[in-house]
Nucleic acid binder design. Sequence first.
DNA 1: TTGAAAGCGTTACCAG
DNA 2: CTGGTAACGCTTTCAA
Lengths: 319, 319
Amino acid sequence: MSVSTVSKALNDNGRMAADTRERIKNLAAEIGFRPNALARGLLSNRSFTVGLLTNDTYGRFTLPVMAGVSEALVDHGVSVFLCAIEDDPALGKIHVDAMLDKQVDGIIATGKRVDRSLPVDLAGLPVPVVYAFTKGEPGSVTLTSDDGHGARLAAERLKKMGRKRLLHITGPLEFTSAVERAEAFRAVAGGGAPVLHGVWSEAWGHEAIDRIWNTGGERPDGIFCGNDQIARGVVDALRERGVRVPEDVSVIGFDNWEIMAAQTRPPLTTVDMNLKELGREAGLMVLALAEGRTIEPGLRKLPCRLVVRDSCGGGGRQN
Amino acid sequence: MSVSTVSKALNDNGRMAADTRERIKNLAAEIGFRPNALARGLLSNRSFTVGLLTNDTYGRFTLPVMAGVSEALVDHGVSVFLCAIEDDPALGKIHVDAMLDKQVDGIIATGKRVDRSLPVDLAGLPVPVVYAFTKGEPGSVTLTSDDGHGARLAAERLKKMGRKRLLHITGPLEFTSAVERAEAFRAVAGGGAPVLHGVWSEAWGHEAIDRIWNTGGERPDGIFCGNDQIARGVVDALRERGVRVPEDVSVIGFDNWEIMAAQTRPPLTTVDMNLKELGREAGLMVLALAEGRTIEPGLRKLPCRLVVRDSCGGGGRQN
DNA sequence: TTGAAAGCGTTACCAG
DNA sequence: CTGGTAACGCTTTCAA
């Protein structure tokens, strides 16, 4: 029995007697034959391998993205090289070179900030590149979450709960996502709705509440926080002051960082950026590109979703 | 100029005129020549690739392990396939098969629990396997953190701070790590020192403190917690009761889960399992095995280290 | 000191 | 319907 015959049998190629094919397949299965992907790749110029580059070592953003990528690609027999490059350009280059040497079919770049790019130049590479949750080159294929949409979801929910005096406590103005969320929040809450910019920490949530409650001014009855850590600080600070959540004040977070959102008392209603889905799409896109299909370049913003727990009221837990 | 000459020049092989070699190398660099790793692997039977299998999608344990593995191997030109298999045996098999097809030089198995194994059989594979922070087959090469050592570090620290009435609040008895830490704690604190088993959550830390302070019994002045979440619950509960940390009670956590430990008020002194180092060692070990070097099988326990912040007193921050 | 040839494990093509 | 042969890009061996 010749190798070429076996090859054809196993790949359902060419014309041959059905029973020969059957016999070969059975025998192959029996002896546990596995075709060598390296040899196959040498011929086909496809390694069924993609690289995932990240400078997030590894925050809660990259994690779900990676899970989505891997999940989408495993069905296509594609494996994922994980490359953590910190913020080190030299390390980035080493990893990119290694991936190129290994003939990856494509590269997905991801990070911890949508408005920063990785410390490595991915333009002009001989393989397709997709940017997911990190800033891409002009004219590249880029996927991000729709921060404005998420913020709208939150603000609308607060209004639907009958909250009138809405407040947004969020991160620094240098973050595009903070700005976009704030804009969307104001669009729903009214242009005069206050927005407090600080840092992305619990401590800032605490401080913001202290500041407001100690000042004589109007107190909010609905607070949308820029992330779950801030929300946790806010909820804790309110509780310490005897303000009840959600009876007196509704609070909504952002990120749906399970371990934080679920452990807060009460558990946080929060915006989920669907990062796993984002990863999945990114995976499918590099794959398409690798197979020569063409994908319209540009920035795609994926919708968010609201995960309802207890901190906003009205919901019941449905997560 | 023939391919074989070029090959020899680039690999510093064979004998040839130094200047010819130089000339070839320069030219190669100039045109950006990169040898095809697939072709090279076909010949050498080494793909310079290892697989990292995990069922932790992806908790704070697997993350540092992965970082360590990647860091150790990148220096050797080895790339890492990341395979998240959840707890699904079928998915596990798919990933293992994919890795084998791609001729990985070895596999590292890691997970979220030291006393459970992955839902996939890695015995009898044609490539070396190293287990890191997950249970390995009998006779395998396995790396774990030394839970007893970590607990001793914590208990000794509490004693050194002059604490006399030590208490350990930790997770369920079914976890080997909880049991080992408790034993080591008792060995230092005295056999009569109380240990409270519950779950690994903030809420349990809270509840334990409530229970103790509401009962008439003796109150601890030094508390060692089974993880940082419990410690956070404990610290919060104490503060809510007006008990000062660390002035009245010293608290030490476990895991050094930055985002939790650093944001607690006061920041947590806690035990770090050195998981990144563990990952690094695991990486180096598969590599050694892949290169035919031999490694004594058995369970290796790596030491922990105490990260001193403010919750125990006496330290100052040195992290 | 250099080059030609064989071979790694596949697949595609074309003769038999 | 089946099998031989070339080719993928590289390294190694051996002859020139």
